[in-house]
Design a protein around this nucleic acid. Structure first.
Lengths: 158, 158
DNA sequence: TATTAGTTTAGTAAATTACTCGGTTAAAAG
DNA sequence: CTTTTAACCGAGTAATTTACTAAACTAATA
């Protein structure tokens, strides 16, 4: 899981799309003005977002972008993953140049943590970010994904 | 909260320090060999870690680095923060060039999320990463920081 | 005194980020 | 049918960050 300014731009643009989506599609030119992100950079980001089905496009006058799915079915991790090239964190993959096993241990610990962050962001939807009333429910969902006895906890909470 | 390869290197090196710390200090040369990170790069990273008190150094032969605090009192967020220059995520800070308030809204939403990630990584100690038996307890602590009724949940769990 | 290993600074190659520019294509409006 | 709009596409590039090399110096040990 990589979390850079590039991902922030993508999430910000998607949030802008959710907040300003009324009747028709939203043009990148509008998002560019509102969020102060270069139009061409937005085009690059949305090209990747479109390929992942997170947005769909409408050409011509009055055209622009709409969400590919409902805002409560699009998760932050998807957006970040879409714009970031996935780089393998470990330089020793499985067998090979692992001397002593300790290299693998630290790498394994890191990837474990990285997966936890990913599952956390994978449980937060665009809509829940906008709608703060959903906040606690989303945290419960995040908890459920991060702990083994998550279901138990949630059932205790009703 | 920025999560780049630089932070990963720092956390990996700190994990190496915890795992291999027996009697005396650990030299960066050893970490460099084990984790395949350039010595000079480690020196730069540990310079920052030292300034934050996360490690302390011993010079001369047999010297090296030890943890500045106990491993269960050093948190991942501290390590990541130490090596990353903190960049302000919002281009409009407070007053100024906020046109319409919507720019601020999306920025606010992002910083909210960013803080959640930060508090999540701020609840995971180095030791808990190593010692998987602490895993569930740490998740509970993380939950407590992320939800308003966290204390309530923890008390329910005993 | 020689060696070890941290400390510091300057410089740099590589990668990534963010952007400019120039075009094309599809669809709507006139 | 022509013009306009805005998505689409690719090459190129400045700025920044990452990761590293090199060279010196300092403290502590053997």
């Amino acid at each position: 899981m990589r979390l850079t300014t590039k991902g922030r731009y993508a999430v910000t643009a998607m949030l802008d799309l959710v907040i300003n989506s009324g009747s028709g599609p939203i043009s990148l030119a509008d998002i560019s003005k509102r969020q102060e992100i270069s139009l061409s950079y937005l085009e690059q980001l949305f090209s990747k977002l479109r390929k992942q089905g997170l947005v769909s496009s409408v050409r011509g006058p009055g055209g622009g972008y709409t969400l590919g799915r409902e805002s409560n079915d699009i998760y932050i991790a998807e957006i970040v993953d879409a714009v970031n090239e996935s780089i393998d964190a470990t330089n020793c993959r499985g067998a090979g140049n692992c001397h002593g096993g300790e290299v693998c241990l630290t790498h394994h610990l890191w990837t474990d943590l990285s997966e936890q962050i990913h599952s956390f962001l994978g449980s937060i939807s665009l809509q829940s970010l906008v709608d703060k009333r959903d906040h606690e429910a989303e945290v419960k969902k995040a908890m459920g994904q991060m702990t083994d006895n998550g279901e138990q906890i949630i059932s205790m909470l009703g």
